[in-house]
Amino acid sequence: MSAMRRTYHVTQEMIDRYGVINGDRDIIHYDAEYARQRGFDAPLAHGLMVQGYANDVAMDLYGPEWCRRGSIKVKFVAPVFPDEDIEVAIDESGELTATGPRGVAMVGTAQLRPA
């Protein structure tokens, strides 16, 4: 099996756009002052948006079998903020990481289940 990695530049506009399709109004993604009150430097990117990046990479890596046997398990270990580059990588064994300028933000696996 091969590996794949891709870098995404996250902006507040992208977070806002994901919030529209996601249908939420959770101000931790939009309100910088509230985010700071909660101990974060800036509004947080949606976890499922970052996981969405990983799904897209996995779909390219595994092809259409990803739709039938794909299994993705992630933990969000650090926030992703606007104006950060996030590199999503899936290695040969299916280990998944998303790494930003402050370190690893998401870890897990993206693998095919046995046929």
Binding site: I28, Q51, R68, V74, F76
Partner: peptide, 15 residues
């Protein structure tokens, strides 16, 4: 307000 996601797993079975 203020919920934060900690982990998420998905298994896909059909396109």
């Amino acid at each position: 307000q203020g919920g934060i996601m900690a982990a998420n797993d998905f298994d896909f079975h059909a396109p």
